[in-house]
Design a protein around this nucleic acid. Sequence first.
RNA 1: GCCGCAGUAGCUCAGUGGUAGAGCGCACCCUUGGUAAGGGUGAGGUCGGGAGUUCAAUCCUCCCCUGCGGCACCA
Length: 656
Amino acid sequence: MVAITLPDGSVRRFDGPVTGTDIAESISKSLAKKAIAMRVDGALTDLFEPVARDATVEIVTRDDPQALELVRHDAAHLLAQAVQELYPGTQVTIGPVIEDGFYYDFARDEPFSSDDLERIETRMAEIVDEDRPTRKEVWDREEAIRHFKKIGETYKAEIIADLPEGEEIKIYWHGDWHDLCRGPHLPSTKHIGKAFKLMKVAGAYWRGDHRNPMLQRIYGTAWLSEKDLKAHLQRLDEAEKRDHRRLGRELGLFHFQPEAQGSVFWHPKGYMIWRVLEAYIRRRQDEDGYVEVKTPQLLDSVFWEKSGHWSKFRENMFVVPDEIPSTEEGKPVLSGEAGLMALKPMNCPAHVQIFKQGVKSYRDLPIRMAEFGCCHRNEAHGGLHGLLRVRQMTQDDAHIFCREDQITDETKRFLALFARVYDDMGLSDIRYKLATRPENRAGEDAVWDRAEKALADALTASGLDFDYAEGEGAFYGPKLEFHLTDAIGRTWQAGTFQLDYVLPERLDASYVDETGAKRRPVMLHRAVLGTFERFIGLLIEHYAGRLPLWLAPVQVVVATITSEADDYAKEAAALLAAKGLRVETDLRNEKINYKVREHSHAKVPAIAVVGAREADERKVSLRRLGAERQEVLDLDEAAARLGEEATPPDLRARKA
RNA sequence: GCCGCAGUAGCUCAGUGGUAGAGCGCACCCUUGGUAAGGGUGAGGUCGGGAGUUCAAUCCUCCCCUGCGGCACCA
């Protein structure tokens, strides 16, 4: 007898082992039809798995929160199945579920083309229609390895050989195709449905290690319904429209060119955003007790050896010979014998030098030392990505030198600053994580215990919920991660906060404590915006280019309807400019429709239209970006209103 | 750096083994028009760079560069 307890608490008894299908059928025909898996005492299991002991069983249908993951997992198998049927000799490796879908990595000499993707997709749909049933077998480890080697699946054989001892070797069959898998799977291919689409092919290293062969990864997306699939594809379209590289070009903000790979040419409008942000964050830092410094770009390699960067970070540094290049015709430009300098990849070691000038007392601490430091990092070519991954970047960087007992307070203070700034930026959806000690680390565990606790205390005292990111800290100390969610639900990391016990030691920074003894300060590396480059990229995508008035490079365009209003337009523009607004005039010989369209495309937040009527009455017809109507206002009132709205949030708060 | 794809006018893109086209943009002319494209004319390209095949290459082949999508990297 097997007693099965259902979620409603009722108990059903069966003569012997029962499968999920049996149980579902005993409840209702329709449930049996909808069933795709079950939970036995809470563990997700195949529907066709016999239950031989008393247990609580929950039948899982497509309405279950975990159904989508099951469907995506099966879709990955479906993909592998279709590929092996169409391209015999292709080896399968792994095929996990990822955000929005799945992928499968294949070993095949010939590359897959986009035409192949279409063929594969068609074959996948056919296999769904064929409704191939799933079944599971448990094999002996050695037998499984022999089998997969024999059929030429060497990667699978390797995976099996590496499975932990004692783990069941489960083989899943979908019709006559089989694969090693931990499961669980849907009862048949029909249940996958057809709300899937193959998205792209890409290279990926076997086991993620660049020393291993490169496999071909096919990415797919899969959903529970066609409607969900369509919505997802629409989201992708939306994201593409927000791409900061595209908007940067369309709005004339910046450009890149091959001669300066990974470095930005900021155009006047793009740099205006930078200037506004920099002025804003500088004010925020000033009021929060920071001092600002400027340190050298180019420092001798000896210095980087001391800081530890030469051994740990050199492959990411730009190294420059300290010599005057030869101008002699035919001679090599550089002798190759000169001493080496390097462009700074970080500001921290230079800040320690300023700290070390003179003797510091415990009374001087904390010192919050800020720099809008321009750093260079020699990122791999393949990793560069618009403004988000560059080789020359400027951070709103600062280092807080403090005593250990000040860590919690300084962290709280930073968290408050961080929240203020992101709220002002319209980015208030932030998730906090505390990244703890990694396996490879410097320092004693007792110090790590204190450091992690100090950060956790600060988060808690600030009333913030947070998760731990175990083992994700830097080798020199734990850190806080700030995960922002943007307007279309994507997450970003920009700011950072890291505790460092190592660098003050390496560079011999010290202060004198109450007893007259020399002590090491703790260093907090922190950036609120992160880099201006990345942060501006983030803002552009978050706002889809429609920046709030205070950040918009051009805030108002005064556009004329007829040339009779030119003089008045200039007068109006001058008045708006006097209110501190960034204003342009459009006096061109074009129709007002054309002008409105063009400035709307340029995402100018406000268009002040003036014709003969407005000129007579000293008014403007104000049209806001995205609005379908306009409002006729007295010029002075319009200037006052726009001036107020364009005031950076911190200054507005100060006035109030 | 690795795998794949791509590179034609400022932008978006078409096209062909016989040295190139559209729309938008730009310039000029006409038009002074009331809230998302008024009309006309014109300028603009070493078809990413180099080599090869060919009578002839933007097109075919090879190498390089750059971009894009991933991977790896990311103090």
